[in-house]
Each structure stands twice: as structure tokens, then as C-alpha cells.
């Protein structure tokens, strides 16, 4: 199972991953810089990957797709499920109880602009393939790699 691996050693804190994430999940069609400008012009983005930053250290945080996911266990409606190693969210089922937000140790689930929860789904719900944050990282600080087995 491929996972998003973040290496803080190479993270520049440029936040391109956040914007690429917002673009990937904006529902816009197309992948060009012009499409991105159209999709993200004059909006405050609410990305599923976020840069944590303090002093000289910065790194991107997104869903780890845990093997034993607390969010899935705690979800009262079954909106969160683990499908083929990817933790998916069914927005139709989410009732905005925020329990998953409280239990996620990484802070990787958050309310979307519509209210229901959102999280990184490895871009499988978008174009698939390599997630946008990985594609757009200029310094290989975010990689999409096989970890072997069904590990965390």
C-alpha cells in the first residue's frame, strides 16, 4: 500500500502542498496553472494537508491512514471506513459530531467549508494516481511510496 511520507529534513514550508491539495479537491477540471488560478482565486483555502511550523522546523501533516484508525472506530454513523488501506469518508453519512476530529492524534481530520468532515483520501476521489501534494512538492519532502505490507 502506497503512503504519503513526509520528510521534515527537506520541507521548506513553502505551503505549495496546501494549495495543491486545495486545488485537487476544488472540484475544478484541469491541472494547468491557469486552472489553479481559476479554482483558487479570491478564496481562503481549507486544505487536507497542513504545514506545521515552529522556529526552524516545518513539515506537512496529512492523514496517516492508520492500520487501527481511531477515527473509524469512533465514527458514530459509519461515515468513516477503511477501504483498501485508504480511510475514506462518506459525506452523506457524516452528521458533524466532530468525534473523529477529537480522537485523531495527528489533527488530520477537519470540518470542510460545507460543514461535514474532510480528510486526505490520497487523491483517490480526485484524479487518482500520485496525490497532488506529492506531485507539487518542489523538494521531494513529500513522497508517495510503498511501505510494504499493510503498515501504519
Amino acid at each position: 500500500m502506497k503512503r504519503i511520507i513526509v520528510n521534515e529534513k527537506w520541507c521548506l514550508g513553502c505551503r505549495l502542498c496546501e494549495y495543491n491539495c486545495a486545488f485537487a479537491n476544488s472540484g475544478s477540471i484541469g491541472t494547468t496553472p491557469l486552472d489553479m488560478a481559476k479554482a483558487l482565486k479570491d478564496i481562503v483555502i481549507n486544505p487536507r494537508i497542513k504545514i506545521e511550523e515552529k522556529d526552524d522546523i516545518c513539515f506537512a501533516v496529512s492523514c496517516r491512514h492508520c492500520k487501527e484508525p481511531l477515527c473509524v472506530k469512533s465514527c458514530i454513523t459509519g461515515a468513516l471506513t477503511r477501504v483498501d488501506g485508504v480511510i475514506r469518508i462518506n459525506k452523506e453519512k457524516c452528521v458533524e459530531c466532530h468525534t473523529c476530529v477529537l480522537v485523531c492524534p495527528y489533527g488530520a481530520i477537519m470540518p470542510s467549508d460545507e460543514g461535514v468532515m474532510q480528510k486526505c483520501e490520497l487523491c483517490v476521489q480526485n484524479t487518482g494516481g500520485e496525490p497532488f501534494c506529492v506531485k507539487g512538492c518542489p523538494n521531494k519532502a513529500i513522497e508517495f511510496k510503498e511501505l510494504g505490507g499493510d503498515s501504519v
Binding site: L12, G13, C14, R15, L16, E18, Y19, P33, L34, M36, A37, L40, K41, D42
Partner: peptide, 13 residues
């Protein structure tokens, strides 16, 4: 200005 989305990447870099 039609294209700038204020992502501030230029500022940080």
C-alpha cells in the same frame, strides 16, 4: 493579478 492566488509561496521562498 488575474492569476495570483495570494498563496505567498513567493514571499516564503
Amino acid at each position: 493579478k488575474d492569476r495570483c492566488i495570494n498563496c505567498r509561496v513567493c514571499e516564503k521562498q
